[in-house]
Computed example of a mutant assay.
Amino acid sequence: MDWVLLLLLLALCALLLHGLRLFLRADADLTLLWAEWRGRRPEQELTGMVVWVTGASSGIGEELAYQLSKQGASLVLSARRQHELERVKSRCLENGNVKGKDILVLPLDLTDRSSHEVATKTVLQEFGRIDILVNNGGRSQRSLVMDANMDVFKELIELNYLGTVSLTKCVLPHMIERKQGKIVTVNSFAGIVSVPLSSGYCASKHALRGFFHSLRIELVEYPGIVVSNICPGPVQSQVVSNALGEEVTKALGNGGDQSYKMATSRCVRLMLITMANDLTEVWIAEQPFLLVAYLWQYMPTWAWWITSKLGKKRIENFKSGVDADSSYFKFFKKKHD
Rank of each mutant, 00 (worst) to 15 (best):
L68H: 12
S69E: 04
Q71G: 02
G72W: 05
G72S: 07
A73E: 07
A73S: 15
L75D: 09
V76H: 00
L77W: 04
R80K: 06
R80G: 01
R81E: 12
R81S: 15
Q82D: 05
H83L: 06
E84M: 08
L85G: 01
E86K: 08
R87H: 05
R87M: 04
R91S: 14
N97T: 12
N97G: 12
V98K: 12
K101V: 03
I103A: 07
V105K: 01
L108W: 11
L108V: 05
L110C: 04
T111P: 10
D112F: 04
R113F: 06
R113E: 14
R113M: 15
R113Q: 15
V118E: 12
A119I: 00
T120A: 06
T120N: 00
T120P: 05
T122R: 13
V123N: 03
L124H: 03
Q125S: 14
G128N: 14
G128Y: 07
R129P: 00
R129E: 00
I130C: 09
I130Q: 03
I130A: 02
D131G: 02
I132L: 11
I132T: 14
L133P: 09
V134A: 06
N135G: 14
N135E: 10
N135C: 15
G137S: 13
R139E: 11
S140W: 12
R142Y: 07
R142K: 11
R142H: 11
R142A: 03
S143D: 08
V145W: 03
M146Q: 11
M146A: 12
D147E: 14
D147T: 04
M150L: 05
D151M: 13
V152Y: 08
V152I: 11
K154R: 15
K154Y: 14
Y161P: 02
Y161C: 02
Y161E: 04
L162P: 00
G163D: 00
T164D: 01
L167A: 01
T168D: 01
K169P: 00
K169T: 03
K169D: 03
L172Q: 02
P173L: 09
P173S: 10
M175E: 02
M175T: 03
I176C: 09
I176T: 05
I183N: 06
I183D: 08
V184F: 14
T185Q: 05
V186I: 15
S188R: 09
A190E: 09
A190D: 11
G191D: 06
I192H: 10
S194G: 13
S198N: 11
S199I: 10
